Amino acid sequence: MLHHLRTTHRHAAPVFVIGYARSGTRLVCRLMRQYLLANSGAERSFSRPEPNQGVRHDPEVAVASLRGRHPREVHEVLGGQLASHHNLALWDDQIPPGIQDLARLAASFPDAQFVHAVRDGRDVALSIPQTTFGPQNVCECAQDWGRTQQTIRAFAARLAPGQFHEVRYEDLTTRPLETLRDLGAFLGVDVDETIVAAMRAGLPADVRPGNGRKFQYVMHPRELERFEGVAAHSLTAAGYPLALQGYARRIGAIERWSWRLHGRTVRLTRRDALRDTAYRLRLRATAIARLLLAAPFGAKRLPRVSSAAQTQPTGGQ
């Protein structure tokens, strides 16, 4: 983060960065913190803040600051600690690919803003098999990516004006300055000439140019046909032209199921995936153990709130 930058945030509501894996969500978060002075959480930033952001949460201060048990209050307290550590006025969090609870999140934070980082699904399909958590073949990725785009667009249609903004990975890699200025305007950040100068100096090193539309040169024609045969509608709805102009062979239910079974088999046999799963289980077991050990020693009891108050939180960040 560039500590010499100063700006004004006209909006004080939290910001959530959403999107499918390998679509630039982490890059968007990093650039927001670097240039727009919005504290940006990475995956597990609240459960693992020290390795991710160099800060350790103070549980005693967090519990003392809580006014009730609503998820919004917990999120605001923890997000506020991260923002205060970086001397920032605005906090945000990155929502990983499991976006089934977006409606619940919007209900808890009715004034929140959502930034959707989207990338051409065919490039995502080339990148995501390198991870230990995602689809392991093009057909499986096309199903998941397409379903995610449909879910996010249906969610965005229910939001009020000024709550949803889309950032294309391709725009970040070809015109990063203009893309960040548009994002700053959406977030209510005054992007003055000092910040613009910092962007011009730093963005060439922060953003990898020419990293979009690689599928045109790298993806095998059969894999391209499989992806467009599954997710042609989602690609078109997201504004990405079809390479095969709608002539891709449709992939039937049995073939889709077989490719999904193939992906699960690969994940079960990859050592790095097994290590990652074991690590996640250890994190959860450690958290549960801490809760069980802390319970008998008089941890502060939080005031009970009515069910109506839980479903309709008041106040803002």
Score class of each variant (00 low, 15 high):
L283G: 08
L291Q: 15
R304M: 10
L283H: 05
W259R: 12
G263S: 15
A308C: 03
L268K: 14
L261F: 01
A299C: 11
H262Y: 11
L291G: 13
E255L: 08
R284G: 11
I254K: 06
D276A: 15
I288N: 04
A253I: 14
R260D: 10
L274A: 09
A253N: 11
R264W: 04
L261C: 05
P296M: 11
W259Y: 11
L293D: 14
L261T: 03
R267I: 00
L283N: 08
S258V: 06
L293Q: 12
R264K: 09
A287H: 04
L261H: 07
V305K: 01
P303Y: 05
Y279L: 14
R282C: 10
S307G: 02
L283S: 05
K300Y: 06
I254P: 00
R260V: 03
R284V: 07
T269G: 00
A287I: 02
R267V: 00
A273W: 02
R282S: 14
A295I: 09
P296E: 05
G298I: 12
A285G: 13
G263T: 03
T265E: 05
K300Q: 15
A295C: 12
L281A: 13
L291M: 15
V305T: 07
A253T: 15
W259A: 12
A294G: 04
L302N: 06
A299Q: 15
R275K: 05
R304A: 13
G263R: 00
A289N: 05
R304W: 14
L261P: 04
A285R: 09
F297W: 07
L293G: 06
Y279H: 13
D276N: 11
R284W: 10
L261K: 08
T286K: 03
G298M: 10
R267F: 03
L274D: 01
V266F: 01
P303V: 06
R267Q: 10
A294E: 04
S258C: 13
R280I: 02
T265C: 14
A273R: 02
A294K: 01
A278V: 02
